[in-house]
């Protein structure tokens, strides 16, 4: 369960060094767009060396490799595949690319005796991928879908705006598909890194559509993203009251009951329980207990 995914350019030693202090739940070490073609080799080596020295990271590690339509993607995999890597972020993903990547991962995992199954996060950033979202979400290894709005709007030849009306459909479609197949829905980055207010508004809107995480392209965006995707104390208090009242109602075999003048039935109780699982994961329930 993640709220924030921070992109860090693979060729930026200072940012790699500080990766553990930014507070992101997951970090995507980037070998694709953030690294120029001349620096791909050094970036791969830097990331490889970094992974080898990293001790007990407090965040999940992902690597965005180059697309599989050239040899760059497989060279990336060869350099970075390591037990520490949670997953591979695949740009311009299609069903066939994901299947190809999955096979490559099988090979690397066997060859390097990596015990865990490396997951795949496809970036939905082409019109074709949006069309295939339902299929992509069901593929093995796929643990989340990430919306890449910049490339997608480029592919669609439409204007990318701060308001984001143009990405309403793919956002909603990703959210529904991810919910249906129980994987994470990761929202596209907000590219104005100095506009904190705009970021908060954008993240809240994505959350309202069903996204449960958001990418960041600057460490300063993490605080707002984490806050947005963490249940509020008010919501947690309400959920705790509902679950407690439900436990009392169960004792007298009542499926529906009233709490503070509002009817509470199973869907409401289930929602409260889900919220508390999330709150517990992010250490919020303990805070309440301490109070």
């Amino acid at each position: 369960m993640h709220r924030s995914y921070l992109f860090i350019p693979g060729n930026h030693p200072a940012m790699l060094q500080n990766a553990d202090i930014f507070g992101a739940d997951a970090i995507i070490f980037d070998l694709e767009d953030a690294v120029s073609i001349n620096e791909k080799d050094s970036a791969r080596q830097l990331i490889k060396a970094f992974f080898e020295t990293l001790q007990k990271p407090k965040f999940s590690i992902y690597v965005r490799i180059n697309g599989l339509n050239s040899s760059l993607g497989s060279i990336d995999l060869n350099m970075v595949m390591n037990e520490i890597v949670e997953g591979i972020v695949l740009p311009k993903a299609t069903v066939s690319d994901i299947k190809m990547l999955s096979k490559l991962l099988d090979t690397f995992e066997n060859a390097r005796r990596i015990k865990k199954k490396t997951v795949i996060i496809p970036i939905i950033e082409t019109a074709k991928a949006v069309f295939e979202i339902g299929q992509i979400a069901q593929l093995p290894r796929v643990s989340a879908l990430l919306l890449g709005a910049e490339d997608l709007t480029g592919d669609m030849e439409i204007e990318r705006t701060k308001q984001g009306i143009e990405i309403e459909y793919p956002r909603a479609k990703i959210a529904f598909a991810c919910k249906a197949f129980e994987i994470e829905a990761i929202d596209t980055p907000f590219t104005d890194v100095t506009d904190d207010e705009g970021l908060e508004k954008d993240a809240l809107h994505a959350k309202s559509l069903g996204m449960n995480a958001k990418c960041a392209i600057h460490p300063n965006q993490i605080e707002i993203i984490n806050k947005t995707f963490t249940p509020t104390m008010v919501a947690i208090d309400e959920a705790l009251r509902i679950v407690k009242a439900d436990e009392e109602a169960q004792k007298v075999h009542r499926g529906v009951f009233s709490l503070n003048g509002k009817m509470v039935d199973k869907p409401v109780v289930d929602r409260a329980k889900k919220l508390l699982i999330k709150a517990k994961h992010f250490g919020m329930v303990e805070d309440i207990d301490e109070k």
Binding site: N18, I21, F22, G23, T194, H218, P219, N220, E223
Partner: peptide, 11 residues
């Protein structure tokens, strides 16, 4: 400061 390390220290 916009420096993320500085902001982390400040927080």
């Amino acid at each position: 400061t916009r420096d993320p390390v500085g902001r982390k220290i400040a927080r």
